[in-house]
Amino acid sequence: MTQIRPQARSVVERSRVLAAGAAIVGAHFIADTAVFVLGEEALLFVDKEARERRVAVHAGAILASAGGDARIITGGDDGAVMATENDGKPVAIATDAKRRWIDRVAVGPDGAVAWSAGKQAFVLTRNGQTRALDLPSAAGGLAFLPKGFRLAIAHYNGATLWFANAQSAPQMLDWKGSHLDAAVSPDGRFLVTAMQEPTLHGWRLEDGKHMRMAGYAARVRAMSWTADGKGLATAGSTQIILWPFHGKDGPMGKAPKMLAEHEHLVGIVACHPRQPVVAAGYRDGLILLAHTDDGTEIIVRNPGEAPVSALAWNAAGTVLAFGTEDGVAGLADLA
């Protein structure tokens, strides 16, 4: 095969792949076991020794997933919120009374779980109670803040910050338009949403100051914080767009870093958990690692297949799990 990026090192031969039998819509790790979320019904566990285990979780499509420390939370079009551990049976955390689709799920730092259905968001509190919040529209994104049992909910015309354990009124952050994803910086100072337009919006939470991050070719469908928490890597362009969040103003007035340019869009990004490295999956199936300091690239997977739809690192950063829209699941051993 012709080397598509002559300047880049290739580790393509260090990947092994398997056919998952359905589109892969998410990837997570429980310790060193990779968990691939399939578009329909099942999770596919692949352990260090490459043993596969398929676990039926939902009765239909799996619409959302989030990884906790020891379990995977999923939401389905069967109205169920499920928790699945490595060796256990899936457990229903909640079932929507009207059997509405579970559109989004999120896992908090202490294992708290949030989900959304219709124009409502829900949180399962530590003492096992379910709290609900009515929203102005369906939730586009959910993200817990690092402290205080507080949930950020992106929706139409802004975002809401909700102390799910307290009686205090939720705080509204206004910005016109449809907000479809949410990411909270690891220091808890910034909330960033991906909008229907090809742009990001952000708020500095201490004072509600707005940030606009524009210039994308397409809607941003993936965001990932760098290991040091000072950068936000994003999809939506033919490069990885990395916004700086190290100053007190975040990315305001600063240009992003642009890494690993390719002829196709970046569809998914995942930052390495320890190193200044971002993994990016492109629409044409290419997977690259890019060093955020010097832009050095490593090819993990050559293009020519379906769009890359899932990426996840194990905690040590030695294995990268990837998945594609046509059901290829892979593990790249980078130790």
Binding site: I62, L63, D77, D103, A138, Y156, G177, Q196, E197
Partner: peptide, 25 residues
């Protein structure tokens, strides 16, 4: 939903975007 793209009559069905994304799974 109204779009913020400078086009005054540009509206989309936000629920449809979400539902089609789910159906295509």
């Amino acid at each position: 939903f109204e779009m913020n793209n400078g086009c005054v009559c540009c509206t989309v069905r936000g629920d449809l975007i979400r539902i089609i994304d789910g159906l295509m799974r």
